[in-house]
Nucleic acid binder design. Structure first.
Lengths: 357, 357
DNA sequence: GTGAAAGCGCTAACAA
DNA sequence: TTGTTAGCGCTTTCAC
C-alpha cells in the first residue's frame, strides 16, 4: 500500500541508482531481470525501488525497448461475446509482466483502423485485433512492424496469426438440428450484404454461406430466405417483425448471432406468436441465452478460450516465432426450448396437431 | 487508405522535416497546432506528413509533453452497465485529438490499483476510475499527479471529480413502488458485508442503507431481510434459491443490481414460483431487462451520460480547472411485469385471491 | 517566423 | 559483475 503504490511523482531510474549507490544501467538490468547482476546488488536496488516507490516510465522504455503492453482492439462492448474474449485475455496475462490495454473502435469512425493505429502509436509490443472488417492487406503490412493476432477472421494470412471458431461446423450443427426437428421454412437473419460478402472471411459471411449450402443440400434451395437488417444488432427486431407478419412466415429463424436473436424473440412476442409457432436460434452462446425467460437455442463459442489463445499466440510471436499459426476452436450446439418442431401448416389447435402424427 | 494509414514503420519527425525542407521544431509546431507558423509552412509540412505517412510517437511525446491519451479503468466488462459508460466516454471523445484506452482490472489482482497504476505508468493525460473499492486517500494522492475522475463513488473528495447516480433517490423510488403495490416482506439481496459497509460511498452500500431506512420509515423494521451472496453477480441465484425455499419467503426481492436480479429471476423459476408469488426488482436498467421474457422492474441509470460527463470533467481538468466538481445524475424507475401486487398469504388459488379484495 | 540545441527517462553496446 | 556512454523521437526554450 505504502511507497510502492505511491504516485508516479517523478522518481526516475537516476534517483534509484543514487539511493542504491549504483549506476543507472545496474538498476535497468535489475528491473529487466537481465543477465549479469549479483544477488547483493539486486537486493540493494530492489530495496531502493521499494523505498522510493519507483515506477519505470513506459514512455521512456518504449523509446528504446519494449513497453510490456499488449493492445487489443474491440469493435463493440455491447455484444457480450467480446467481454468474454477480454476476460480470457486478461486471465492469460495474469501474473505476467505484460499489461493489456483495450482500444475501443469508435463506431463513428473508420472501422477499427483508428483504434489499431492508436495502439501501434503507443508502442505496444503486440496487437490483437477483433475488427472483422479491417483489410487483410493492411494487417499484413502492420504485421511487418509488430506482432499481430486476428480473432474471428477465417482467411489465412502469412504475416499474422488467427484465432477463429469453426463457423461452418457450428452452423451445420445448428441447421441439422432445425431440419431434424422438421423445419423446412428456415429463414436466416443477417446484416447488410456488404458485411457478409462471400469470401470475406467474416463469421457472418461463413454462417450465411453455410446456411445456403445446407438448404441446398437438403433440397430446400427454393426456400432459402435471407432477411437483412440495416444495423443487425439493433435492427433485427424490426426486420424480424416484417418477416413474421409477412405472408411467407418461416417456421424457424436463424439469426447470425445472439444479439439479433434476442431481437427476433422480442418480435415473436410482439407479433403474438409463441415458440411453438416460430423457432428461433442464435449464435455465440451468450449467458443470457440460458435464462429461463429466454431459453435460446444457440451455438456456443468459447470466447474466453479464444481470448486466452490469442494472447498465447501473441506472446509466442513476441518471443520470436515467425511461422504463422491458425487456431480453430470448435463450437458447441446448445439446444434450448426456443426451438421446437414446427406446427403443421394451417393447423391452429392442439387437437389437430395431435391427430397429425 | 494509402500512406496515411501505412504502418508506423519508423518515419520520424526528422524525415518529415527533411522532406519538407524545414526544421524539426517547425514540424513539431505544425502537428501541435502551436503558435507561430506561417500558412505556407503549415501546408508544406502537412503535405510531407501525408506523403510519408508520418505518425508521431506517443512514447516520445510522453517524455516531454502530453500523450493525448485518456485512461479508463473498469472492474468488469461482463456487467452490461460498464460498456454503456465506455460508449458514452468514447462518443464524448469522438473527433477530439484524445484517444481512450481501457485498462481492465484483473479480478485475480488487487482491486483496480494495478490497472490504474498501469495507466499512469503509460503517461495518460487523465484517468477515469470506476473501481468502487480503491481507497479515496490513494486517489487523492494520485490526483496530485494526474487529473482524476471517479465514477460511482458518493464520498466527495477535494482532489478529484466524481460522477454518480443518485442511488438513494433511485432506491427510494423503487421501494415506494414495492410498498405501493402492497409488499411488506421485501428482502434485499446484496454482496458480502465488506463491500457494502455503511459510509463506504459505494452504490451497493447506499442502496442497502436506503433499503433499511425505507423499511424503518414504513414501520417494517422487523421485516428487514438482507441476504448476502458471496460473489453477488454469480452467486445471487444460489442465495435467492435459499431465500425462496426457506420458511420466511419474502413476497418481493430487491437485488442490488440487475445482474443478480437475473439470477433471482432464474431462482424464482427454478423454485417453481411465478411473478405473482414473488416480485423481483433490480437496479441499473440494462437492456435485457426490457426483454419480454425477462421484463424486470429496475432503476435505470444513464450510463452513457455518466461516461460522457466523466470525459467532459476530465477534459476540463486537463484544461486547467482545479476546483472539484461532483455531478449527480438522476436515475429513473422503470416498472415492468416482474413486480406485481403480493398474493395474500396462504392463498394458493385464483378464486380465493379474487375474493380477497 | 524559423531553426539550433538541450534534454525527457530509459536501454543496450561496450569498456573497465 | 559493474559503469560509461550514446542515442531513441519528441518538445521547448532561446537565439536568430
Amino acid at each position: 500500500m505504502a511507497a510502492s503504490r505511491s504516485s508516479t511523482g517523478s522518481v526516475t531510474i537516476e534517483d534509484v541508482a543514487r539511493e542504491a549507490g549504483v549506476s543507472r544501467a545496474a538498476v535497468s538490468k535489475v528491473i529487466r531481470d537481465a543477465y549479469g547482476v549479483s544477488p547483493a546488488m539486486r537486493e540493494r536496488v530492489a530495496a531502493a525501488i521499494e523505498q522510493l516507490g519507483y515506477r519505470p516510465s513506459v514512455s521512456a522504455r518504449g523509446m528504446r525497448g519494449k513497453t510490456f503492453t499488449l493492445g487489443i482492439e474491440i469493435p463493440e462492448l455491447s455484444n457480450p461475446f467480446f467481454p468474454l474474449l477480454l476476460a480470457g485475455a486478461t486471465a492469460a496475462l495474469s501474473g505476467s509482466p505484460y499489461q493489456l490495454i483495450i482500444a475501443p473502435a469508435d463506431p463513428a469512425h473508420s472501422e477499427g483502423y483508428r483504434a489499431i493505429q492508436a495502439l501501434v502509436d503507443r508502442q505496444v509490443d503486440g496487437v490483437i485485433a477483433v475488427s472483422p472488417l479491417v483489410e487483410p492487406a493492411w494487417l499484413t503490412e502492420l504485421a511487418a512492424t509488430v506482432p499481430v493476432v486476428m480473432i474471428g477472421r477465417h482467411d489465412r494470412a502469412d504475416g499474422y496469426d488467427t484465432v477463429v471458431s469453426d463457423d461452418e461446423a457450428g452452423t451445420r450443427r445448428l441447421m441439422r438440428h432445425l431440419l431434424d426437428l422438421g423445419h423446412r421454412d428456415i429463414a436466416h437473419l443477417t446484416g447488410e450484404s456488404d458485411r457478409t460478402a462471400p469470401g470475406s472471411g467474416v463469421p457472418q459471411a461463413i454462417r450465411l454461406q453455410t446456411y445456403r449450402a445446407v438448404m441446398q443440400e437438403a433440397g430446400l434451395g427454393d426456400r432459402v430466405n435471407v432477411a437483412r437488417a440495416v444495423d443487425v444488432a439493433t435492427g433485427a427486431h424490426r426486420t424480424a417483425l416484417q418477416l413474421l407478419t409477412g405472408a411467407e412466415r418461416p417456421t424457424a429463424v436463424f439469426a447470425c448471432h445472439d444479439e439479433p436473436a434476442l431481437g427476433v424473440l422480442r418480435a415473436v412476442a410482439d407479433a403474438g406468436l409463441t415458440a411453438d409457432e416460430v423457432s428461433v436460434a442464435g449464435y455465440d452462446g451468450i449467458d443470457i441465452a440460458g435464462h429461463p425467460g429466454i431459453s435460446l437455442t444457440t451455438v456456443r463459442q468459447d470466447g474466453e478460450r479464444m481470448g486466452r489463445l490469442a494472447v498465447e499466440l501473441l506472446l509466442e510471436r513476441i518471443t520470436g516465432r515467425t511461422e504463422p499459426r491458425h487456431e480453430v476452436v470448435g463450437p458447441d450446439l446448445v439446444v434450448r426450448s426456443s426451438t421446437r418442431p414446427p406446427r403443421p401448416r394451417g393447423t391452429a389447435t392442439r387437437l389437430q396437431a395431435l391427430g397429425d402424427h
